[in-house]
Design a protein around this nucleic acid. Structure first.
Lengths: 332, 332
DNA sequence: TTGTAAGCGTTATCAC
DNA sequence: GTGATAACGCTTACAA
């Protein structure tokens, strides 16, 4: 079933069918209507491979994330896909499972499909993998300041989030603020740790080594880190964590240790995942606006394919979502 | 950059390059090695559109789910994609947001890309949408007994899960068991409700109308439904819910009402989402084996494309994951 | 406004 | 073993 058969049945040329298919204006309305009816009647569906081969563009974007099982990503994917669909662009999607080798093969496969652009929304990237993409395919990265020279970027200004968090805690009278960091091998975790420390200094709050614990970014890690922090004397009256999963773990550890949240200790997470509003007490969390990140990435790619102009990389700002895991500092 | 240039540079014909690319055996090893080195040197990547156009198959499967934001799906997608990658098959992925109209356009877009098979892993399907796919493209559905005549199917035997759940509760001395159902407009929710009722009858447990409440499949709905059930007298000593989100809501409602879980009331969820093990107490839940569903769907499609034989649709069995939200029935 | 025909990059057939 | 070449289904000059 191809355009020839439609043409024959409609008694026009393939060129005319093609014009109708692509909404060209230089077709008599009567012809167009007739062709459309034949198309419908025959249940004809054009072959995208032939079109892409001919046109050189595929009307397709690649989207790569670290880990679809990480609740951070589904909403990002959703938003990206919605925007793409709106523009008649399909999304071919893969994830790397945090494996740099896989990033490389992901990009390669997308290049083979000659996608028109690739959004690499992983927390880690490496030059070797990015090199798989020829220069004419635009790439956009998520918060990778180190690569802005060669690629588009969606920068995330973590500091805004920490500033809001510390303001919030300070307004409740907290001064003794601990941090549960992620492994320093993860660049995003490292960055969050640094930004927290900088924000603390800016607010002239004491940064004590022993009030910084490290977890594995998972619930259990948060639990253990919190146990450690809560066994100290003096111990922090508030704890900020590097992600929500560890915050949930910290919450459970605190409750388990007989401490009230937020009466004895306040907890702030990072990411604002759906889980944040499902635990009791609901978690105050620094929200990374996932839909906004997706939107910026998408429009950056779209611009690149449309007119080749490099978008100004507008910065995305996290913001604090206040719920019930934060409250006044306990009297000493 | 195409196969011609590689051929010229390697001083062979395009046919030979193509043979090397596709691992044909009838190429002298020396020639093959030479061509491969030229390919590497030139950083040549074959064009999949041209190949698909010529070969007629795209080495690509379509995967459609209801809602990527529903934590049920990411693991399914992950598993499906992993299997596909193993076979050198790409996955083009979309979601319908539970919109039947969107299912139709999703399938249409996949047909345009001439995928080799489509996994429709939505809880709802409709004939009109499925009709978009020509007969030569195999479709596999998830638990849609009504469509098995025309399409492949991954049947899910809900009853196993409910049987295990009721056995578990009965061993704890529970007889008064309530149910929080989903809206009967959702076929999966309806099915779960029916299966629960049938299992109750099989165990000769009393099914009381007032012990069946209805929620919206979301946390809030479970909360309200549980409030309703807990205000009854007598009230059930255990409650099974139609999904985990409502179970979490029910859990919170119970705790909020001053009832201990499981000391005063036991709760069992359905799906075994990640959240089930993150709440306190951790939720006992009927697990739908998502990876297994994905695997069955994938291998069914693969078989269809390989040898056209219709796979026996092996039934998937849910099973009970026992955690801490269930315990002995309270003494009356 | 419509038709003709070349060509996009592969692979498969046939010849050598 | 290797090479020449005709498709695959579409879009787009160019011609009419």
């Amino acid at each position: 079933m191809d355009i020839q058969q439609v043409a024959k049945r409609a008694k026009v040329s393939t060129a005319t069918v093609s014009r109708v298919l692509n909404g060209a204006t230089n077709v008599r309305e009567k012809t167009s209507a007739h062709v459309r009816s034949v198309i419908a009647e025959m249940n004809y569906v054009p072959n995208t491979h032939a079109r892409s081969l001919r046109v050189g563009r595929a009307r397709m974007f690649g989207l790569i994330v670290s880990d679809i099982n990480n609740p951070f990503f589904p909403e990002l994917i959703d938003a990206f896909e919605a925007l793409a669909t709106e523009q008649g662009i399909d999304v071919i999607f893969t994830h790397t499972n945090y494996d740099p080798k896989r990033l490389q093969s992901c990009i390669r496969r997308m290049v083979e499909r000659s996608v028109d652009g690739i959004a690499v929304m992983t927390s880690e990237v490496n030059q070797e993998a990015l090199d798989m993409a020829p220069k004419h395919i635009p790439l956009v990265l998520m918060n990778q300041p180190a690569y802005t020279a060669l690629y588009r970027n969606v920068p995330v200004e973590y500091s805004t989030g920490f500033r809001e968090a510390l303001e919030h805690l300070r307004s409740f009278g907290h001064r003794d603020i601990g941090f549960i960091a992620g492994p320093s091998t993860l660049s995003s975790a490292k960055r969050r740790h640094q930004e927290w420390a900088m924000a603390m200094k800016r607010f002239k709050l004491p940064v004590r080594k022993q009030w910084i614990a490290t977890g594995d970014m998972r619930l259990e890690g948060g639990e253990r880190a919190m146990q450690q922090l809560m066994s100290l004397s003096p111990r922090p009256s508030a704890v900020i964590t590097s992600n929500d999963l560890m915050a949930v773990g910290a919450l459970q550890a605190a409750l388990h240790a007989g401490l009230g949240v937020p009466t004895d200790v306040s907890i702030i997470g990072f990411d604002d995942l759906p889980i944040a509003s499902m635990v009791v007490p609901q978690l105050t969390s620094i929200q990374l606006p996932r839909r906004e990140i997706a939107a910026r990435a998408f429009s950056s790619l779209l611009q690149a394919t449309r007119d080749g102009i490099v978008a100004k990389s507008e910065v995305v700002h996290p913001r604090l979502i206040v719920r019930n895991s934060t409250g006044p500092a306990p009297r000493p």
